[in-house]
Amino acid sequence: MTAGRAPAFNEVIHAPLRLRICGLLRSVDELEFSVVRDALAIDDAKLSKHIKVLTDAGFVSLRKERSASRADSRRLTWVKLTPVGSTAVEAHLAALTAIANGADFDALPGQA
């Protein structure tokens, strides 16, 4: 199991790009939107779509701030896992580990 969390498979997190977003965010306080975009090699629209799903689920929060290095009023968007999101990611990773180790998928908590 990951970090002692009870396994709980999460369909929202499991989508490949959302899982990768959560993977990037789980070990940092927050990342700037463009850093996430570039790390995943995707466009702004695709990243925005997946971040919206994670935000709507309460797993990610956004913070906007004015860029000190720019003369215009463009704002930077910072992305971070919420405490609920962090718990859900760790539980999902625990579920994936349990599945990889041969656990009975139907016996995992959080399964309907």
Rank of each mutant, 00 (worst) to 15 (best):
M1A: 10
T2L: 15
A3D: 12
R5H: 12
P7N: 06
P7R: 02
P7L: 07
A8F: 08
N10E: 06
N10Q: 05
E11T: 10
E11D: 15
E11R: 13
E11M: 14
V12M: 07
I13P: 00
H14S: 15
H14N: 15
H14L: 09
A15Y: 10
L17Y: 06
L17H: 10
R18H: 07
L19M: 12
I21E: 03
I21Y: 01
C22A: 15
C22R: 05
C22N: 06
L24F: 04
R26G: 08
R26Q: 12
S27I: 14
D29G: 11
L31G: 02
L31F: 05
F33Q: 04
S34N: 11
V35E: 15
V35Y: 13
V36Q: 04
D38Q: 11
A39C: 08
A39Y: 12
A39W: 05
A41H: 10
A41S: 11
I42F: 05
I42W: 04
I42M: 15
D43G: 12
D43E: 09
D44L: 14
A45I: 09
A45P: 07
A45M: 13
A45V: 14
L47I: 08
S48E: 15
K49C: 15
I51T: 08
I51G: 04
V53H: 12
V53G: 09
L54Q: 00
T55V: 14
D56I: 06
G58E: 01
G58I: 03
G58Q: 03
G58V: 02
G58P: 00
F59K: 04
S61F: 14
L62N: 10
R63Q: 13
R63I: 08
R63E: 14
K64P: 07
K64N: 13
E65Q: 09
R66E: 12
S67F: 13
A68S: 14
S69K: 12
R70S: 09
R70L: 09
A71S: 15
D72K: 07
D72M: 03
R74T: 14
R74V: 09
R74N: 15
R74A: 07
R74C: 06
R74K: 10
R74Q: 12
R75A: 13
R75C: 08
L76H: 15
L76G: 06
W78Q: 09
V79T: 03
K80G: 13
L81P: 00
L81S: 02
L81C: 06
T82R: 03
T82P: 00
P83L: 06
V84H: 12
G85Y: 01
S86R: 13
T87C: 13
A88L: 06
E90Y: 11
A91K: 05
H92T: 04
L93S: 06
A94G: 07
A94S: 11
L96Y: 05
L96A: 08
T97Y: 11
A98E: 07
A98P: 03
A98Q: 02
I99P: 01
I99E: 03
I99N: 01
N101F: 08
G102F: 00
G102T: 00
G102N: 00
A103D: 02
A103Y: 00
D104R: 07
D104I: 06
D104M: 03
A107K: 06
A107C: 02
L108H: 01
L108I: 04
P109F: 02
G110W: 00
